Computed example of a mutant assay.
Amino acid sequence: MIDVYICEDDVKQLEQIQTIVRRYLMIEKLDMRIAMATADPQAILAEADNQHQRLYLLDIELGTPMNGIELAQKLRQVDVNCKIVFITTHAEMLTLTFKYQLEVLDFIIKDEPEALQARLIQILNLAQTRLTSSQHHQAAYVQFKVGEQVRSVRADEVLFIESAQVPHKLIVHMANAQFEYYGTIKQAATLNKNFYRCHKSIVVNQTCITVINKRLHQLTVSNGETIDCSVAASRALAKLVRVSKM
């Protein structure tokens, strides 16, 4: 399912865009839905994550301290794979999308209302094709927000994630590297289907487990490191993972 987010400060234009999108999705039965239509960029930003496929239709002048360009920058920091389209009267702003490397899918000028419906339909079809074709590729990667940057890592390169001593900070362990980011263990366990919360402060990649020691309540991962594992988790993993058991 692809979620469509619309941010437009003109009430009539917001309704017009919603109507065109909703009607086309209903007729064509595309696997898409309007998740939000609002004039508030903060509301859009509050919903942003990297766990869903998303298309953003943004005005540039929003009548708020945050304009559409700034909103797109913040969205791109959270979700490098989202698709962004600007719908605006400001054709001169097109160059800014290149300056800030926003990788915009399209730029629709409002001064051409007769072409708006046709362009939106083209965008919906293009977004469906692009996001669907990249779905398998995205599933093989996990994303972490490290400072102001989003770091994409192959899921099979993550051995385990553990809580750091600093509150709300996690450490990602890979075979030959590690890095820290802010998040929660609960959320880390949802990043990939192979990630399993084996301890209150540890999420392990099931595909990297080499030994399950039920006596010591420990797991050994592919680089030889051992990590703690709860009694319940060691029993569950013993059924899920075909590795040496002690």
Score class of each variant (00 low, 15 high):
Thr190Ala: 10
Asp111Val: 00
Lys200Tyr: 06
Ile60Trp: 08
Ala139Ser: 15
Arg76Tyr: 13
Val85Arg: 02
Val21Phe: 04
Cys229Glu: 12
Asp9His: 04
Asp228Asn: 11
Gly183Val: 14
Thr89Tyr: 09
Ser244Trp: 03
Val21Gln: 07
Leu191Val: 06
Gln16Pro: 00
Arg54Phe: 05
Ala115Cys: 03
Ile69Ala: 02
Glu103Tyr: 00
Gly224Asn: 01
Ala236Asn: 11
Glu47Gly: 04
Ser234Trp: 07
Pro167Tyr: 11
Ile60Glu: 10
Thr132Asp: 10
Gly224Cys: 01
Asn223Ser: 01
Gly183Ala: 15
Asn194Pro: 10
Glu15Met: 07
Arg154Thr: 05
Val158Ala: 10
Leu62His: 03
Met93Ile: 01
Val231Phe: 15
Phe160Cys: 02
Gln42Cys: 09
Ala188Arg: 02
Asp31Lys: 13
Ser152Tyr: 01
Met26Ser: 14
Val11Ile: 05
Asn192Gln: 06
Ala43Val: 14
Ala37Ser: 13
Ile20Ala: 05
Thr184Asn: 12
His173Leu: 00
Leu120Tyr: 04
Asp9Gly: 02
Lys186Val: 12
Ile123Gly: 06
Asn194Thr: 15
Met36Gly: 02
Ala189Asp: 11
Val80Thr: 12
Met66Trp: 01
Glu157Leu: 03
Cys7Trp: 02
Ala188His: 06
Leu124His: 09
Ile108Tyr: 04
Ser244Lys: 09
Phe98Ser: 10
Gln218Phe: 05
Ile109Trp: 03
Thr210Arg: 10
Ala118Val: 03
Met1Leu: 09
Gln53Asp: 15
Gln18Arg: 09
Asn125His: 08
Gln117Tyr: 04
Ile6Lys: 07
Arg23Lys: 14
Asn223Gly: 00
Ile121Gly: 05
Gly63Leu: 04
Thr19Phe: 04
Arg235Met: 14
Gln77Gly: 01
Ser222Lys: 07
Thr38Tyr: 11
Asn67Met: 08
Lys29Ile: 09
Ala127Gly: 05
Arg215Phe: 12
Ile87Leu: 03
Ile123Val: 15
Gly68Ile: 03
Cys7Lys: 04
Gln178His: 13
Gln135Lys: 11
Glu70Gly: 11
Ile108Trp: 06
Gln101Met: 08
Gln218Arg: 14
Gln42His: 15
Tyr141Thr: 07
Ala188Phe: 09
Glu70Ala: 14
Ile209Lys: 01
Met93Gln: 07
Leu237Asp: 01
Val150Glu: 05
Phe179Asn: 04
Asn50Trp: 10
Phe144Tyr: 10
Tyr56Pro: 07
Lys214Ser: 13
Ile185Pro: 05
Leu120Asp: 04
Glu148Trp: 03
Leu105Lys: 01
His136Thr: 14
Ser133Asp: 11
Ser133Ala: 13
Val166Tyr: 10
Val231Tyr: 15
Ile202Gly: 04
His52Asp: 11
Thr190Trp: 08
Ser163Glu: 13
Lys239Val: 13
Pro65Val: 06
Val78Asn: 03
Ile227Gly: 00
Ala236His: 12
Tyr196Ser: 07
Ala48Gln: 10
Asp79Trp: 04
Phe98Gln: 12
Leu75Glu: 02
Phe86Arg: 00
Asn125Ile: 03
Gln187Glu: 14
Asn81Val: 03
Ile69Tyr: 03
Met246Leu: 08
Glu61Ser: 11
Leu45Met: 00
Gln178Ala: 08
Cys82Thr: 12
Thr89Ala: 13
Cys7Val: 07
Leu170Tyr: 12
Asp10Gln: 10
Cys229His: 06
Gly147Tyr: 07
Met93Pro: 00
Ala236Lys: 13
Glu112Val: 06
